[in-house]
Amino acid sequence: MPQQATPTRTARLGRSAGSPPSTVGGVVLLLPPGAEVSARRPAPVTSTAVRALARALSQAGRAEGLVAHPVHYRVRGWNGAQAQLAQDAAWATDEVVRRYGDVPVCLAGVGMGGRAALRAGGHPAVASVLALAPWLPEDDMAAPPEPVKQLTGRQVLIVHGTNDERSDPELSFRLAARAKKANHTVCRFEVHSDRHGLRQYRSEVVALSVDFTLGSLFDHDFSRPVQDALAAPPPLGLRMPLASGFTGAGRR
């Protein structure tokens, strides 16, 4: 009996959050957490941070024609030099261009998805990158550092809890510092005492993410804290504290 070939898994875009607009003006691709090494099929997109952010972005950006799609990876793992999650993020951006044409894209990732967003940020359609508690590799003298040149010309926001037990916040600070040397539109906020899931200040993190995304995709004014973080030289603009009660720029 002939042996059947194992079906090849493919990445795909999940259903957009909320009702799709009649005219699409911009797209956010939501990249969920993953694993450092794994060939297993990804779990359903159940990350609370991804769900909350998708709903908030869809509602806040409705008038601008914003669409928010979760990305379903082929496999769960980054898997070393294969960088499979970043490959899937790049594929998803190509798919956005195929579906919607020349619209600005924000890559928004959580955990390992944050690393994928940063790595795939050089795609020509990407206008901005949002990385929440990004997982980044430890510094290794024998390996090249995590690249940052692809972020030139993009607006970049990194958000990290100071008590993150899974993704070292100091590593995201170092990456932001290297990226800032080549690209002045990089900022980073620290969420005091929060951990990897950014649950303690969930509403503030979502408000900051919405403020940044709408500002970067649709050329709105950022809230004053984001403006200050982008304008401040390192390390001030890369260790900006996220204030309790932050609600963004007050857009409707």
Rank of each mutant, 00 (worst) to 15 (best):
K149W: 12
R154S: 12
L30T: 00
D168R: 14
P241K: 13
P234W: 08
M141K: 14
R40Q: 07
H69C: 11
R154H: 12
R166V: 12
R178C: 04
G111P: 05
R202G: 01
G61F: 04
T213I: 04
P7R: 05
A143E: 15
R252L: 13
E138G: 08
S167W: 10
T185L: 06
A177L: 10
Q200T: 03
P42N: 07
D94S: 05
L107V: 03
H123K: 06
T8A: 08
G25W: 02
A86E: 14
S244C: 08
W135N: 12
V45W: 00
A142N: 15
H72I: 12
Q84M: 12
L236G: 09
R99C: 11
V129Q: 09
G153A: 14
A54G: 15
R51N: 13
P144N: 10
G18I: 01
V45F: 03
V97W: 07
S128C: 15
T6Q: 08
R195T: 05
L107R: 05
L171Q: 14
R40A: 08
L136G: 05
Q87V: 03
S216W: 01
G80F: 11
Q150A: 15
E36S: 09
Y100L: 04
I158S: 11
K180F: 00
V156W: 13
A231R: 12
F212N: 02
L66R: 05
R224Q: 14
M141R: 15
R15F: 04
A120W: 13
K180Q: 03
T48G: 13
E36Q: 12
R174F: 09
A11H: 02
T10R: 11
V210H: 04
L118W: 08
E95Y: 08
F222M: 03
A81Q: 14
G237P: 13
A108T: 01
A81C: 02
P134Q: 12
P124F: 08
L236P: 05
L175R: 10
G197W: 00
L66V: 01
A49P: 02
F189W: 00
F173K: 05
G65K: 11
Q87W: 07
V186Y: 00
M240Q: 15
T48I: 09
G197Q: 03
R166L: 15
Q150Y: 07
D211Y: 01
P145L: 15
L208M: 02
Q84F: 06
D102V: 11
A5V: 06
A89E: 09
S193L: 04
P233G: 05
T48L: 10
P2L: 11
R55L: 11
G109W: 11
V71T: 05
R51T: 14
R174N: 07
D219H: 07
A179S: 03
A116E: 04
R202H: 10
P145M: 14
L157C: 06
A11T: 13
A56Q: 12
H184R: 09
P134C: 12
H160E: 07
P145R: 15
N79E: 06
T6G: 00
Q155Y: 09
R195V: 01
G121L: 10
G109S: 08
V97M: 10
V45C: 05
R119K: 13
G18A: 02
R202T: 06
D168W: 10
A133N: 08
V129Y: 14
D194M: 02
A5F: 04
H184N: 00
P124T: 07
P145I: 12
D94G: 11
R99F: 00
K180P: 02
N183G: 02
